[in-house]
Design a protein around this nucleic acid. Structure first.
Length: 324
DNA sequence: CGACTAGCCTGAAGGC
DNA sequence: TGCCTTCAGGCTAGTC
C-alpha cells in the first residue's frame, strides 16, 4: 500500500529521530529482508555497524539513509572505495519502519531487521523494519552522482556531500512529481512515445515515480480519463491536466497523512487509512461516482484491479481507429 | 528500446 | 469446522 505520501510520512517521522545517530548494533532476523543487498559488497551487519546516519532521503517510494564514518573508522570492506554508501529501503507492500525505545518488547512476529541506535541528543533508540509479506527490503548500496546534477531526493538538508548522489539501486527510478527537479516536459515527451495505456505509464517508476494503484486510479478519476487510453493519444493540455491532478492527489494525501502522524510510532501499513476517507474511485466498486452518481466499476488490470466511473472515464478511440 | 508477464510473499476473507 | 481459492500489489527479471 505505501505510495509516495505514506513513504514521505515515514521519512519525515524517521529523519529527526535518526539523523546523527550511530548504529550501535544490527540484528538480521530474516535474511529475506536483504534480498536486494549485494552480499558481494560485504556483510550487511558489518557494513552498517558503527556507521552514523547522515540523513533520511526519499525519491518516489524509495528511502535511503546516507551513512558516514565515525570515530576514525570507515565502515566497509576495507577495499578503499571511498564512494559514500547508504542504507536503501523499500517498504514493498507491508513494510514498516517502527521507531521504538530500546526496551520495547521484541515480540513482533514480522520484525525482519533491527537497528540499535545511539543518538547524541535522544539517547538509545531502535528502528525495527517490520514486514509481513516480505516484499520490502533493506540493503547497503554505493552512491553515484545524479544524472542531472540536481539534489537526488527529498530530505530536510540538501547541502550534505551526499545530497546530489543517489544509491545505484535507485538511479533508474525517475524523479517523483513533487520533486522540484521533476522535468514536466520530459514526461510529456515520453508520453508521446507511449502507445500503452496511460495508467500503465503512471505506474512505471522509470517514467514517473511514487504512484501506485490507488493514486493512479484517483488521479485518472480526477481528470476523467480511462486508464487504457493510450498515453500518446492525449493532447498536451490533457497531459498538463493529468500531471496537475497527480500532484494534487499526492499532495492532499500527504497533508492528511502528515496530520494523522504520530512521531513515536511510524506506521505505514495503511491500517489507519491516511487517505481512505477521501478516495473517490479506488476500492469503491458499486458505489456511486461522487461526480455523476454512476456506480464505480472494478476491472481486471495487470493482475490487480482498476476502479473507474464508466460514465466520466470513457475510452476515447481515435476517429481513424473506429472508422467504419 | 518498448511492451508485457510471471513470480515473489502472507494473511484475510469468502465459498462450499 | 476446515480446506481451498482469491485477493491485495511494488518491483525485478525475463521474453518477445
Amino acid at each position: 500500500m505505501p505510495e509516495l505520501p505514506e513513504v514521505e510520512v515515514v521519512r519525515a517521522g524517521l529523519a529527526p529521530a535518526v539523523t546523527g545517530a550511530r548504529i550501535a548494533a544490527v540484528d538480521v532476523l530474516d535474511e529475506r529482508a536483504l534480498t536486494r543487498h549485494d552480499a558481494a559488497s560485504g556483510d550487511f551487519e558489518r557494513l552498517t555497524t558503527g556507521a552514523v546516519i547522515r540523513a533520511v532521503v526519499r525519491r518516489g517510494k524509495f528511502l535511503w539513509l546516507p551513512i558516514g564514518e565515525v570515530a576514525g573508522r570507515i565502515p566497509g570492506d576495507g577495499r578503499n572505495d571511498s564512494r559514500p554508501r547508504a542504507i536503501v529501503g523499500h517498504l514493498g507492500m507491508s513494510g514498516q519502519m517502527l521507531l521504538r525505545t530500546p526496551d520495547h518488547p521484541g515480540d513482533d512476529r514480522h520484525a525482519r531487521i533491527r537497528l540499535h541506535l545511539e543518538h547524541p541528543a535522544h539517547g538509545e533508540l531502535r528502528v525495527d523494519f517490520v514486514d509481513q509479506r516480505t516484499f520490502g527490503s533493506l540493503a547497503v548500496d554505493r552512491m553515484v552522482a545524479t544524472a542531472d546534477g540536481e539534489v537526488a531526493g527529498f530530505s530536510a538538508d540538501v547541502t550534505g556531500e551526499w545530497a546530489r548522489s543517489v544509491p545505484t539501486q535507485v538511479s533508474h527510478i525517475a524523479r517523483d512529481p513533487l520533486d522540484p527537479a521533476f522535468d514536466d516536459d520530459l514526461l510529456f515527451e515520453r508520453m508521446s512515445r507511449r502507445a500503452s495505456g496511460v495508467k500503465r505509464m503512471l505506474l512505471d517508476q522509470g517514467v514517473v515515480s511514487g504512484i501506485g494503484n490507488i493514486y493512479a486510479d484517483e488521479s485518472l478519476w480526477a481528470v476523467g480519463l480511462h486508464g487504457e487510453q493510450p498515453a500518446s493519444s492525449l493532447s498536451r493540455p490533457r497531459r498538463v491536466e493529468l500531471l496537475r491532478a497527480v500532484r494534487d492527489v499526492l499532495g492532499k494525501a500527504l497533508v492528511e497523512g502528515g496530520t494523522s502522524f504520530d512521531a513515536q510510532y511510524v506506521n505505514v501499513n495503511g491500517q489507519s487509512g491516511y487517505f481512505a476517507h477521501s478516495l473517490n474511485a479506488y476500492g469503491r466498486a458499486g458505489e456511486p461516482c461522487p461526480r455523476c452518481g454512476t456506480p464505480i466499476v472494478r476491472e481486471a488490470f495487470m493482475n490487480r484491479s482498476s476502479h473507474r466511473c464508466p460514465r466520466c472515464q470513457r475510452l476515447r478511440r481515435r476517429r481513424a481507429a473506429t472508422a467504419r
